[in-house]
């Protein structure tokens, strides 16, 4: 999976979203150890401090857990992962409506398209 960063939004947020996606799709499997900050930062070609911030946000929503001795591991909490997956899917749906409405479709018409 490639890292894609757009121009208009904070980099750490975009990294956070892509890290979420990687966890939800099993690129980083549940219970596994996350790669180090430096490694992911260099893979994505971004500043390690920015990556650190994105990873800390994963910690704060509970998708990963940091311990002092064993580094950062991916959660095994399936309910949480389902919930976050749904939130991301909702975001995608909203974006679909926003884009179709910019083309002059009503919500109902947009649903027809699907």
């Amino acid at each position: 999976m490639e890292w894609q960063l757009s121009e208009d939004r904070p980099i750490f947020q975009q990294l956070y979203e892509q890290l979420c996606r990687r966890i939800l799709t099993g690129v980083y499997p549940p219970g596994s150890r996350m790669p180090s900050v430096r490694d992911v930062a260099s893979e994505a070609g971004v500043n390690p401090n920015t990556m650190q911030r994105a990873l800390q946000q994963l910690d704060s929503v509970g998708l990963t857990e940091s311990t002092r001795t064993s580094g950062r591991t991916v959660t095994t909490d399936e309910a949480l992962m389902r919930q976050i997956r749904e939130e991301l899917a909702q975001g995608a749906v909203q974006q679909f409506y926003a884009e179709t409405s910019a083309l002059g479709y009503t919500r109902e018409e947009a649903k027809q398209l699907l």
Binding site: D8, R9, P10, F12, T50
Partner: peptide, 10 residues
Amino acid sequence: VDNIREQQGK
């Protein structure tokens, strides 16, 4: 950089 992007949206 992230503060600028956040505040200015660009």
